[in-house]
Amino acid sequence: MKTLPIKTVLLDPNEQASETNYGELIKTVVGRVDPSQGGIRVEDMAKRLRIIDAVNALAPDATEIQLEDADAATLVESLSSMRWAIVSHAIADFCGDMGAAK
């Protein structure tokens, strides 16, 4: 079992509307399918949906999420192939926090 932090962050410190939290970023990462891969297999979709369901089940004031080791590995794998459209300290910190899951 891995415990990951859930934090609220500003993707752009100069833009209040850029507030998001790690739960939303997790759903973005595992919900994205690389079109160059030709889609996603149902087995892989099921793995990712387990993570999305775990995030959706969090209480609004949750500060951490616990994922099974296999789900945490799926998250890290998805994160490693993610391409971001912005440069942000918050995203770099998120990636570091997800990779350092305990």
Rank of each mutant, 00 (worst) to 15 (best):
A57P: 08
S78M: 14
A70Q: 09
A59W: 03
V76S: 06
E68H: 03
E77G: 03
S80T: 10
R41D: 13
L75H: 02
N56V: 09
R48D: 01
S80N: 14
A62Q: 06
I51F: 04
D69L: 08
S78N: 13
A70W: 08
A46M: 06
V87N: 15
D71T: 01
I51C: 06
R83L: 11
W84V: 10
R83F: 08
L75N: 00
A62K: 05
L75D: 05
V87D: 14
I51H: 00
T74K: 06
L67E: 02
V42K: 03
S81K: 14
G39C: 11
M45A: 12
D71Y: 01
A72W: 00
M82G: 08
A73F: 02
I52P: 03
L49D: 06
L79W: 01
R41W: 14
R48C: 02
E43V: 14
E43L: 12
K47P: 00
E68Y: 02
S81W: 00
A59V: 07
A46E: 09
D69S: 04
A62M: 06
T63P: 07
A54H: 07
L49Y: 04
A59F: 09
D71C: 04
I52G: 10
R50K: 07
A59E: 11
E43R: 07
L79A: 01
A54N: 01
S78L: 03
E64H: 10
Q66C: 10
I51W: 00
I40D: 02
V42G: 05
G39I: 15
R48V: 07
E64C: 12
I52A: 11
S78K: 12
L75R: 00
N56C: 12
E64V: 05
R83K: 10
L67T: 04
S78G: 15
A62P: 13
E77Y: 14
W84D: 13
G38E: 04
